[in-house]
């Protein structure tokens, strides 16, 4: 219905068939291992030997690279350049321009930070490409997360596109009435209230009606709820989750032990 807003790509792959919780644990443990590992090359290794194969197995490699190249890579390049130039570190200078220099140490640090962030974003991107948020939420509420949390997340996903469309409508409407949204700074500041006001008041008015509607449908009921869709949780899923948690703990122990 609102696929546009989520990353989810509907495919049939072993990763898509995993339990949503397993995939969430996988994403989190990859991030934790990348950040906790005492070895310098771990994030790069994770990216090359875990995340790239995962994206292929999940058959979302094209969407994954599309997102990484268009959205993430430019940020990471800027981040690398800024960090390489400005992170403090006294060591052999390898590059100098306009009195700014990249030293060996700062370049190493910058590369590590960038790789960590790449692993973090990639592992969550793969989770989101293969898992629909509402599937994840319904699995979480099946495991005991209060239903209200699932309600907030899922209805946000529906309301946000509506609200963005409404914001666009209000901008056009106020412009057609002569609101200046492009000239001097002060004029633009003056534009905030006539744009934000209608949007916020309009959406808050609906809140009360919606509250009555969902209360009438047993929102506050504390009795056990049934689920429309059964989500598979195989013994392989459970084993994989424990293995991943064990890996994180092992990394943590190594980190403490080696430092």
């Amino acid at each position: 219905m609102h696929e546009r807003l989520s990353f989810f790509v509907k495919r049939d792959s072993p990763i898509h068939r995993l339990n949503p919780m397993t995939k969430a644990v996988m994403a989190l443990s990859l991030v934790l291992i990348a950040f906790l590992s005492p070895w310098y090359w771990t994030p790069l290794a994770l990216f090359l030997f875990v995340i790239l194969p995962l994206s292929l197995v999940a058959r979302v490699a094209r969407e994954y690279w599309n997102f990484i190249l268009k959205v993430i890579l430019p940020t990471l390049i800027i981040l690398f350049i800024m960090q390489a130039f400005f992170l403090p570190g006294e060591s052999r200078s390898i590059f100098e321009v306009f009195g700014l220099e990249i030293t060996e140490l700062s370049a190493r640090l910058a590369f590590r930070n960038v790789m960590r962030i790449l692993v973090m974003i990639s592992s969550f991107t793969i989770l989101l490409l293969t898992t629909h948020p509402s599937e994840l939420m319904s699995d979480l509420s099946r495991r005991g997360l209060p239903g209200q949390f699932a309600y907030v997340v899922i209805s946000s996903l529906q309301i946000i596109p509506q609200m963005q469309a409404k914001a666009q409508t209000i901008i056009s409407a106020q412009r057609s009435r002569g609101l200046d949204t492009q000239s001097s700074f002060l004029r633009r500041v003056g534009g905030i209230l006539p744009l934000v006001g209608p949007l916020v008041f309009g959406s808050l008015v609906e809140v009360e009606e919606r509250a009555i509607a969902i209360e009438a449908r047993g929102f506050t009921s504390t009795r056990p709820k049934t689920f429309l869709r059964e989500i598979q949780d195989t013994s392989f899923d459970r084993a994989l989750r424990w293995a991943l948690i064990a890996c994180v703990i092992l990394t943590l122990i190594l980190r403490i032990w080696l430092s």
Binding site: Y151, V152, S155, S156, I159, I160, V207, R210, A211, I214
Partner: peptide, 10 residues
């Protein structure tokens, strides 16, 4: 609970 998603969208 109903206000929260609206606030997030805001």
């Amino acid at each position: 609970w109903v206000l929260m998603p609206v606030a997030i969208a805001i």
